[in-house]
Design a protein around this nucleic acid. Sequence first.
DNA 1: TGGCGCGCTTGACTTACGTCAAGGACCGGC
DNA 2: GCCGGTCCTTGACGTAAGTCAAGCGCGCCA
Lengths: 282, 282
Amino acid sequence: MANHLPVDRLRRGLCTRCRINDISVYNVRKYLSNVGFLYVAVSSGFNIPMKLTCRDCSLAELCLPRALSPDDMEQFETMVDQRPAMARGNFLYQTGDVFGGLYAVKSGSFKTTISASDGEDQVTGFYLPGELFGFDGFDDHYSCSAVALEHSSVCELPLSSIDQLVVKLPNLRRELDRLMAREITTDQSMLLQLSRRTAEQRLAAFLVSLSLRFRQRGFSGTELRLSMSRYDIANYLGLTAETVSRLFKRLKEHHLALVNGRTVIIQDFEALHRQVHGSGGR
Amino acid sequence: MANHLPVDRLRRGLCTRCRINDISVYNVRKYLSNVGFLYVAVSSGFNIPMKLTCRDCSLAELCLPRALSPDDMEQFETMVDQRPAMARGNFLYQTGDVFGGLYAVKSGSFKTTISASDGEDQVTGFYLPGELFGFDGFDDHYSCSAVALEHSSVCELPLSSIDQLVVKLPNLRRELDRLMAREITTDQSMLLQLSRRTAEQRLAAFLVSLSLRFRQRGFSGTELRLSMSRYDIANYLGLTAETVSRLFKRLKEHHLALVNGRTVIIQDFEALHRQVHGSGGR
DNA sequence: TGGCGCGCTTGACTTACGTCAAGGACCGGC
DNA sequence: GCCGGTCCTTGACGTAAGTCAAGCGCGCCA
């Protein structure tokens, strides 16, 4: 397994194999100790002191500012707050909190959940580096809670900044609208998933989506490390952890994917993809 | 049954019992012929020639412009296009159409649907007078199709107008953000419904929501006329038409609601409400 | 490095809801 | 007022996925 190192990307803050974007010796140590396999056999280049700007950030092409011209970008950067890293399981915000702003994942990953009156939760989304979340809060209060799935960090775009920026930067407003529409579209396609697809198809769709998003971020699209538990996956897909477990077993038997704990090796992406769209649901 | 007539509201374009907002002799005749029970035993006051302004519209307190000051409202009105009425079953827009703008229901009702690659549809929402839809289109193309469920009409807020107005009217932008966030929140609470609630709970939630929204619009909250088919309801709730039918029967047996064709009489709202939140799902 | 607990797996059994099929009611058009 | 089609209802039956329970093992912490 390649220990071929994309040093320049690392310098800019991101290892293409891991999910580290805000580099510091502490974080890397911490991260490495969590990672099962060691793609990062790094020597130097770690304790670069830095306050990342968006232009430096390796996620720039994926993240919100990608719609901005260099001039706009400069204005934009001054409005973005970098938040301290968070430990796994910590809440970034909770249901009912006053809307503070939007968040972009800088490193790690998050889940958002809503809770029913009886206390039961529903996972509504997983967010990877470069992805924006918090749109549900625009109605004054967040309707979801956001939880770090691993050691993670975010950039914050505070509400006050948004109000100022959208007037000055029409491109930013349009990009925000676009992202919000995409949030709606993905939620709605989940509605279709939940009501018209079999458990098998849902899991296949989940893996395909993750694979594509990882690849987009420069990670491997075939060897993934899941940051969420079986329970989270099951909940997100409207299933139980037992069912997910059995399905993973079936994927293994059919040589579509090899799942071992939280490591997933996708063996036959095409077949998985076919399964998603394949021959109707229930 | 009262033929007590809210004439002033009718003058302004809305009968509180029916769903007529854009009054013309033609429309009323057309509508009456579709309605099973005749609340509207109207004599005069029908063929009022009018181009409704938002200030005249009886839906003003519910619709988008409610966030606007009188001055703002005047600017806003000039940008809104009134579309000709549409027959049942007609598309306002279809999946993939270039985003033209947002729509507010003026009379009648609409459903939005997405379709899977295999051609199967999923109903993602129902929209009543005063409700805004089309947000999914902000990402350049509509990801849903919008279909009139009965003889209906809409007001259009074209994209070009939105771009101009949001700069001039910050309150409008905030209201749009709020509505968009609400769309996200309702979609996500549907995710919870679909994955964690029994068929019975889903249908109860559907009826409770409809009842509240009808009441908000000045219609009866206890005697509803559904504009959507059993198939649509079932599809929206992730069930089959057969199951919905059986559930309606059960509601009748338990004296919670009386359902006859498309007429629903809610007998015990509280009990229905309890059923929604009651003692966990599956 | 070793111990403990949570998260995962596996099997046996249950059930809510879907599927299939047939008949009935309503509605709109001629 | 009759006829055709669509929408709705009802019953019999099947099954995908849930529930319950028990054991295993990874990974986290001391």
